[in-house]
Amino acid sequence: MIGIPKSLFYYYDGKIWTNFFDYLKIDYVISPDTNKEIIEMGKSISNDEMCMSIKSYLGHVAYLSKRCKYLLIPRIENFGDNNQTCTNFLAMYDLVNNLFGNEIINYNINLNDNETLKKGLMYIGYKFGKKKSLIKKALNYALKRYNKERKKDILNNILKLKKSKKKVLIISHPYNTYDTFVGQPIIKLLKDLDIEIIYSDLFNKNSTNKLSKKLSKDLYWKYSKDIIGSIELVKKNIDGILFLSTFPCGLDSLVNELIIRKINIPYLNIIVDDLDSLSGVETRVESFVDILNQ
């Protein structure tokens, strides 16, 4: 049984993994949505200063560690020189490997060395004794299905831009946006106040990645570029931006600061801490929406 932590990497490639495993009939289990218990577990094994998303990730790993033989922990280094990732994405495999006793299913993405997701999944297929032809079919199936779903999501996201409701673009890493503990409660607050949510990760990544240059010329983090570029794409169609990050995210602390200095759109900057209660955030979201409605 392969344990898949429902955190970080999952929100980028998770659906491809599960499609792939389904086709190959490899057993897996996904950890539950982030909850208090998982956060507490994560905190107990983390270093105090780690960002909340990492603490939460380690909580998911701890949850699975007791229940599964294998853990799926990829490493994502870069998509070329100007598209690197957070150093935590580089360190996570070795950190987990040193802290937990499970056998780890790992692959590396480093486009500079031609290490890709496809190659990584092929390797996992071999590891579980599957035939090459079958693995290739599974890979095709997984990517096709993922792309089809993603296209649909992107279309929906774009269609929302035409609606007459007030629209807020969420600038946040998917592992925060879709996390039940970080992004979802805040998104619900906005939706309850009749706000249409535009997701920064649901656009064509190639175009947002290039567009990010207009806001930040030196930026070299792939996942930040992908989401930041969406501002250039939709700035005329939105009423406000919500910057959402976890404390103390190394990338966001610089990137969001620069972007906030450059844009001329009402914004709200929320930094989620593991001790945060929602009450303080609620008032801030409400007054933000008040400004948008004026």
Binding site: E49, C51, I54, M92, D94
Partner: peptide, 16 residues
Amino acid sequence: SSFCTPEIAVMPIINK
């Protein structure tokens, strides 16, 4: 320095 992400990530390993 505070908030030095790469070092924070490996401190548990160094400690071990």
